[in-house]
Design a binder for these strands. Structure first.
Length: 877
RNA sequence: GCCGAGGUGGUGGAACUGGCAGACACAAGGGACUUAAAAUCCCUUGGCUCUUUUGAGCCGUGCGGGUUCAAGUCCCGCCCUCGGCACCA
């Protein structure tokens, strides 16, 4: 029979709520610990088993730190603006305000049912006017610092979603949300100058304790590259084409130039003869979606403009082409092409028969571009030469010369672009901006914030035609909201809204002082609580959210709102949770089984191209043969064995509510942590849940006699014996160390080992069990509280001091030493600890062993290695 | 293609700084209890070979080499899986 988890979990959740057990006060003298989860989008489908993974990890740390005497800030809130909430509202035909509220209620209830120790009085919600007032306030500060501007820029326009998207929201030419096609079109939009902070965002990665892979992703995203800008005069026209290059050392090898189709000089440079083909090409390029441009990447296309440029280093006349392999958005939108030493230029030159000239020795340019190291050749004019130099030296020398002559200069370039900050959506923060009929931009005064989102019946975006100017939903807002008259002048409100990231850029600050209506955050509280000591969330936010939040934080730092350079000191990503491992058999149309290696990625037969059907198998229908799983009754047939991402369509989604209902919150928490290391991707297993549930039952029966529901007869007030103390103190040490390392799976394994041992004891000293319950409590708080209470305590264990281990119980007085002969374990011996610690004694004793004597008989001992307290290795032949 | 992480029993995983590979759990098998089942408790469980038994030997951490008394762990080369980026000049 299972322990009464439903009853006790409800009981303790009520207790914590009623007694405000986890309410955090600003005790400035106490050491603080700020542990934060990435707050969720309260989607319509409710909590997913992925959510409680990170949340349980942080909850364990939070509960542990409290017991360690820290003042812990552990809050939760809702990132409720933006596409997911709005799409859901549209699907269900209900206003987003209502669906959002409903979704939040559901999420809150679900989170509470798992027993997380959040201070719910600090809950924040990005869609609350009291919250977004400060989001708008930050926008005003950005504007005042010149970091927000309106610009007509080519944007990622997604007609299906009726909005523009940031580059990061576009994956391979399709929208991250919904996978709709995305097109480029110019639009007047708000931009944030994140590029101004590029260097600091890069450098300050040094200051934080983050996964190296995440730092690397951010570095790549920022994409700093050093090189030079060089001006190429256009032949016959008084214009220059500016290019950016990281390889100024190859300047003598530039045999042609390429402009992006959108480059402003294209029209001027194109000669009459080529005008038509260039126009056609430009049109074709503009009609391609980003998706098509990426897909056609293998084949480079371009057209000649008829124009020529002069290479400033050798006065050579080189042709100017237009090609879409040059992007208008990177560098200057134009390149000097050095086909001998750049793969893309090489491919293009081959296709269009353009000259290829070697300027770096070391490769074979008749076969392929040589991009490696080498010595510069063929690179001299009357004034100077870089021949014979290594590339790095040559770069320096030629850049100096270019600067002296005024042809170019040193330049650092970034892949990072300014942040497109407008969305043509309803469900977002309105901008605190008024636009006069003459185009004057006027900020809403800070004391008039927030600018409320007007209530609207029809909030749907209007998918528009491509050439039509998109009309944001707010253009249909009531007139009295849309228009404001100040000193007789009429202004229209900005009708775009902010993107989803806005609210999540600074929520960690609001948790510190959530009800302050005078300030975003009180400076004293901010100084006490910041930075966030531990931040846990998924890798999917490695660039987007984390880079934006760092940017805003640095701006707030510059204007004195925050005191730390970086917001998140330590960052950990929890791994993804996949569905249960599935064994799939493929069948062709005649129902014959098809071995898995014959199945293509498209799910069709690789040879016949026939579409195949999938059949799910149970575990006992398959068996392992070598590397693969095969059909038991026909081992010729290889079966596919893998776990898939949870998805509704696959039907392998696990709902945390069901686990809580069936096994209890403590089992859910424990299982999520026991599955494997927090950071790893893992697959779900119901059997595994049952396993940890069984463990909790064993814990229960350790203390409670099931028949009588009274304390177990074996419980005693006696002093624990040595064996019991050792088992306990080993567990204290292991669990403590493992929580510090966030190695929760092994901490749980140690607690299981302890319980297994305790079951074998003749008595169960209460003292030992009480200490054990304290160790268990961060992981399985409900059962721990209940048993703690039954052992005679009248208040929560949440603030009991964390147990300390005593080294003296860990020392074994007798030690087992391994004897190896030629590196192989041949024997063992048990010695008193002091003897095992002495090399000489160890060696002597080992050689005396009968077993050893036999084995080394007739051999010469070459060497004896002794590791005190561990092993002896005798090398003999 | 580039960057990053990883590859250990039937499964999830453990192994500190090079020192007994497989902790803990799942599954499987056997036994106890039970009229029976569930639950619970106990035992076995990496592979192969030899042995009547006690037991003994060999192999084994993706593959191939190397360093070392000793390698899952360090070095070199390769293969595969997952995640990210992708014409970035």
């Amino acid at each position: 029979m299972a322990y009464p988890f439903r009853k006790i979990e409800q009981k303790w959740q009520k207790y914590w709520e009623k007694n405000k057990t986890f309410k955090t006060e600003d005790n400035f003298e106490q050491p603080k610990y700020y542990v934060l989860d990435m707050f969720p989008y309260p989607s319509g489908s409710g909590l997913h088993v992925g959510h409680p993974e990170g949340y349980t990890a942080t909850d364990i740390v939070a509960r542990y730190k409290r017991m360690k005497g820290f003042n812990v800030l552990h809050p939760m809130g809702w990132d409720a603006f933006g596409l997911p909430a709005e799409q859901y509202a549209i699907e269900t035909g209900t206003h987003p305000r209502i669906t959002t509220e409903r979704n939040i209620d559901r999420f809150r209830k679900q989170l509470k049912s798992i027993g997380f120790s959040y201070d719910w009085d600090r809950e924040v919600n990005t869609t609350d006017p009291k919250y977004y007032k400060w989001t708008q306030w930050i926008f005003i500060q950005l504007y005042k610092k010149g970091l927000a501007y309106l610009a007509e820029v080519p944007v990622n326009w997604c007609p299906a979603l009726g909005t523009v998207l940031a580059d990061e929201e576009v994956i391979n030419g399709r929208s991250e949300r919904g996978n709709h096609p995305v097109y480029r079109r110019p639009l007047k939009q708000w931009m944030l100058k994140i590029t101004e902070y590029a260097d600091r965002l890069l450098e300050d990665l040094e200051l934080v304790d983050w996964p190296e892979s995440t730092k690397e992703m951010q570095r790549n995203w920022i994409g700093r590259s050093e090189g030079a800008e060089v001006d190429f005069p256009v032949y016959g026209i008084d214009e220059k084409i500016r290019v950016f290059t990281t390889r100024p050392d190859t300047l003598f090898g530039a045999t042609y130039m390429v402009l992006a189709p959108e480059h402003p000089l294209v029209d001027m440079i194109t000669t009459a003869e080529y005008r038509q083909q260039v126009k056609d090409y430009q049109l074709k390029a503009s009609q391609k979606s980003d998706l098509e441009r990426t897909e056609l990447q293998k084949d480079k296309t371009g057209v000649f403009t008829g124009g020529y440029a002069i290479n400033p280093v050798n006065n050579e006349k080189i042709p100017i082409w237009v090609a879409d392999y040059v992007l208008i958005s990177y560098g200057t939108g134009a390149i000097m092409a050095v086909p001998a030493h750049d793969e893309r230029d090489y491919e293009f030159a081959q296709k269009y028969n353009l000259p290829i000239r070697e300027v770096i020795s070391g490769g074979d340019i008749s076969k392929e571009a040589y991009t490696g190291e080498g010595i510069v050749v063929n690179s001299a004019n009357e004034e100077f030469s870089i021949n014979g130099l290594q590339a790095s030296k040559a770069k320096e020398k030629i850049t100096e010369w270019l600067e002296k002559k005024g042809f170019g200069k040193r330049k650092v370039n970034y892949k990072l672009r300014d942040w497109l900050f407008s969305r043509q959506r309803y469900w977002g923060e309105p901008f605190p901006v008024l636009i006069g009929e003459d185009g004057e931009i006027r900020l809403v005064p800070e004391n008039e914030l927030p600018v409320d989102l007007p209530p609207m019946e029809d909030f749907k975006p209007r998918p528009s035609n491509e050439d039509e100017e998109p009309q944001p939903p707010l253009s249909r807002a009531p007139e009295e909201w849309k228009y404001v008259t100040i000193n007789g002048k009429r202004y229209r409100r900005e009708l775009n809204t902010m993107p989803q990231w806005a609210g999540s850029c600074w929520y960690y600050l609001r948790f510190i002082d959530p009800h302050n209506d005078q300030k975003l955050v009180d400076p004293e509280k901010e100084k006490y609580w910041m930075p966030v000591d531990l931040y846990v969330g998924g890798t999917e936010h490695a660039v987007l959210h984390l880079l934006y939040a760092r940017f805003w934080h640095k701006v707030l730092y510059d204007i004195g709102v925050v005191s730390t350079k970086e917001p998140f000191q330590k960052l950990v990503h929890q791994g993804m949770i996949l569905g249960e491992t599935e064994y799939t058999l493929y069948l062709d149309e005649q129902k014959n089984p098809v071995s898995a290696e014959l199945v293509g990625k498209d799910g069709k037969h690789v040879k016949s191209g026939q579409p195949l059907n999938r059949k799910k198998l149970t575990e006992d229908e398959v068996t392992k043969q070598g590397e693969v799983f095969v059909l038991k009754e026909n081992p010729q047939i290889v079966v596919e064995a893998r776990a898939y991402k949870m998805s509704k369509s696959r039907g392998n989604v696990i709902n945390p509510d069901e686990i809580v209902e069936q096994f209890g919150a403590d089992s859910l928490r424990l299982y999520e942590m026991f599955m494997g290391p927090l950071k790893d991707t893992k697959s779900w297993s119901m059997k595994g849940v049952e396993g940890v549930h069984r463990f909790l039952n064993r814990v229960w029966r350790l203390v409670v006699d099931e028949e009588s529901d009274q304390l177990h007869q074996l419980l005693t007030d006696d002093e624990p014996n040595e064996e019991q103390l050792r088992a306990l103190h080993e567990t204290i040490k292991k669990v403590t160390d493992d929580i510090e390392e966030m190695a929760f799976n092994t901490a749980i394994a140690q607690m299981m080992t302890f319980v297994n041992a305790a079951y074998k004891w003749e008595n169960r000293p209460k003292k030992v069990l009480e200490t054990f319950l304290l160790l268990l409590s961060p992981f399985a708080p409900h059962i721990a509280e209940e048993l703690w209470q039954r052992l005679g305590h009248d208040k929560t264990l949440a603030y009991e001091p964390w147990p300390e281990y005593d080294e003296k119980y860990l020392v074994q007085d007798r030690v087992e030493v391994v004897i190896q002969i030629n590196g192989k374990v041949r024997s063992k011996m048990v010695l008193p600890a002091n003897e095992a610690a002495d090399r000489n004694v160890l060696q002597e004793k080992a050689l005396q062993l009968e077993d050893v004597q036999k084995r080394i008989e007739g051999k010469t001992i070459r060497k004896v290695i002794c590791v005190p307290g561990k092993l002896v290795n005798i090398v003999a032949n």
